[in-house]
């Protein structure tokens, strides 16, 4: 690919697209949904998202529809027909609904990486529904430069990651998302009577299951992490075993050489161990990175939930003493 670096780091999205994607994902909760975002890239390095549509079927897991045959065909059909309407739009990215850090699946990352190879400015908008009914949480992500380099070379060993300064902290770059409306839409919105505030978000009890759900997701991510880590630990033990064998061999050769010097014989090659021993191959750290990232996001969200719960609960407790 000639143009590797992404040039557009701001996304503007129209209110109608934003609301319709939020409606579709929240109305189908707890089913997961994804879809395509269409628009165009302007000369100032801004991606304008003007249209969006969901894929016909819910996702089994995050990223499931992005590269599926039916999803891709649907995306193609819609885009073709929108173009017939005279819209100068192209595919720009996807959206995906998820719970907290669960979106970091190899399928989603793989699909996004493929897409970024075709167009370095592709992105995905993640709608986190762990606080559904309470707040709206959206973020636009793109795989980082470091990740893309490792992906292209297919190198996921710890020394490669170290070399690229890649860790689970910087798999993704977060992009700036802004809302941009047509003038007529703004005129309309500004003239609406302000809608009544949503009282449901004040209901303390309606939210109690979500922390539990997050914790369950965390357990299962930790399980996957451990499964992967076991392989790695096995490798490390093997490596250690081989290394101590090598050290033993080196020690012996050293002694042997000392003997030979005394006798006046020619010294033996000290580097011969390289042909005698083979170090085990390090397993890929790819999955480890994804699981770590998911766990990190989940942990952050749980901590946030806990802070929230503690604040509310303490407020009530304090007031009780006054009663």
């Amino acid at each position: 690919m000639s143009d590797q670096t992404s040039s557009a780091n701001t996304i503007t999205i129209s209110s109608s697209v934003l609301l319709s994607l939020i409606r579709h994902t929240s109305e189908n909760y707890p089913s997961l949904f994804s879809g395509a975002l269409l628009g165009f890239e302007d000369d100032n390095g801004v991606i304008d998202v003007t249209h969006g549509f969901p894929f016909p079927y819910p996702d089994q897991y995050e990223g499931g529809s992005l590269k599926s045959r039916s999803g891709a065909q649907y995306q193609k059909d819609i885009l073709e027909n929108f173009k017939k309407l005279g819209y100068g739009i192209e595919f720009q990215g996807w959206f995906q609904s998820t719970i907290s850090g669960n979106f970091v699946t190899s399928q989603l990352v793989e699909a996004l990486a493929q897409q970024q190879l075709a167009n370095a400015n592709s992105f995905i908008i993640i709608h986190d529904m762990s606080s559904i009914g309470k707040e709206v949480s959206l973020k636009a992500l793109r795989l980082s430069q470091g990740f893309m380099t490792a992906y292209q070379d297919g190198k996921w060993k710890s020394k490669d990651l170290e070399h690229l300064k890649l860790s689970y902290f910087n798999i993704f770059d977060e992009l700036n998302v802004e809302v941009k409306n047509q003038a007529l839409v703004n005129l309309y919105l500004a003239n609406l009577k302000s809608t009544e505030p949503e009282l449901d978000i004040l209901n303390l009890a309606s939210h109690q299951t979500s922390t539990g759900q997050l914790l369950e997701s965390l357990y299962s991510q930790i399980d996957s992490f451990n499964y992967d880590q076991n392989n790695f630990n096995y490798y490390q033990r093997q490596l250690q075993k081989e290394q101590s064998k090598i050290n033993q061999w080196k020690q012996q050769r050293k002694l042997e050489n000392l003997e030979r010097v005394k006798k006046g014989d020619k010294e033996l090659d000290t580097e011969e161990w390289k042909t005698l021993f083979r170090l085990p191959n390090e397993p890929s750290r790819f999955n480890n990175m994804l699981h770590s990232h998911a766990i990190d996001v989940l942990a952050d969200d749980i901590l946030k939930k806990c802070d929230e719960e503690l604040t509310k609960s303490s407020v009530i407790e304090r007031k009780l003493t006054l009663a």
Partner: peptide, 24 residues
């Protein structure tokens, strides 16, 4: 349609007036 959408809509409407919209 949904509570989540309503929250987003209130944010957007507020955003038109104050010129900033908070998504996250």
């Amino acid at each position: 349609g949904t509570t989540t959408e309503k929250i987003a809509f209130n944010n957007l409407q507020q955003g038109v007036i104050t010129n900033t919209t908070n998504l996250h």
